[in-house]
Amino acid sequence: MYDESIRILVLSAAAFFAGLTGFIVYFVVLYRNKQLKNKKEQEQLQANFRQELLKTQIEIQEQTLNHTSREIHDNITQVLSFVKLTLGLTKNLNPKETQVKINESRELVGQTINDLRDLSKSLSFEYITSLGLVKTIEKEVERINKSGLIDMTFLVDGEAYTLGEQRELVLFRIFQEALNNALKHSRAKHFKITLQYHSDLFNLTLEDDGAGFSMETLDNKSGSGLRNMENRAALIGGVAIINSSPDKGCSVNVTLNPFKQFYTDGRTHPDLLS
């Protein structure tokens, strides 16, 4: 009877454990497959992010080159032409008048050298990343205000901290896009930039008082720049909210948690799958 008890117990236990082990092994295999699939998706997202970042860098450089080209054409070329003309006229003047003209020309050439120096610095987007977001926007605001194209206001609320090179680059690009839209499409007279630095939240607000637009009537072409802003904000772990209505200007609000990880985090844990 004891032998029969043992036999029944062993058979039942063996069948049971075989079933349970089979289930656990099946689960482990399924889990491993899921991990590999997730890893591939993560890599794809990281690749997309790198591509988008590269695109952002290229666009910033394009913008900078366009600005440089305009500055050279509108400003530097004009000033040097004026200097050439002025110096050309000195052959008909007396020594005292000639000296005055030469001094004026020297001042203008000196100013041009300074402008060229500033331009050469701004050609590199690494210049942007080394200065940080606040200083870069400040310089841009200064430049635009000098040009008189639009009246810009820049406010910083809270103590500024770094958000990381990549995020600041993307935020600067969003700022450039919004500014471009205000200058080219909306005929805005004022453009306000606000940066809010809180301990657990960062906010960038870009507002203009231009013609505005109806959110419903945006087509693919005209809305792509705005959608770009939303996508880029999402890539760096933020949220971009764009609000506008006809004759009420446009506002772009980008919010992000400065401590939230996003897809380009390169940290690894020793137990992470290779």
Partner: peptide, 30 residues
């Protein structure tokens, strides 16, 4: 399975705990 971690399953405490619970609860019926 819905939220897999990128960590070897053998090194996940949840896996061992859950296996223990499934093992024990089903064995009690046996």
């Amino acid at each position: 399975l819905l939220y897999p971690l990128q960590v070897n399953i053998i090194k996940q405490s949840v896996f061992w705990y859950n296996t223990a619970m499934l093992f024990f609860s089903t064995t009690m019926f046996l």
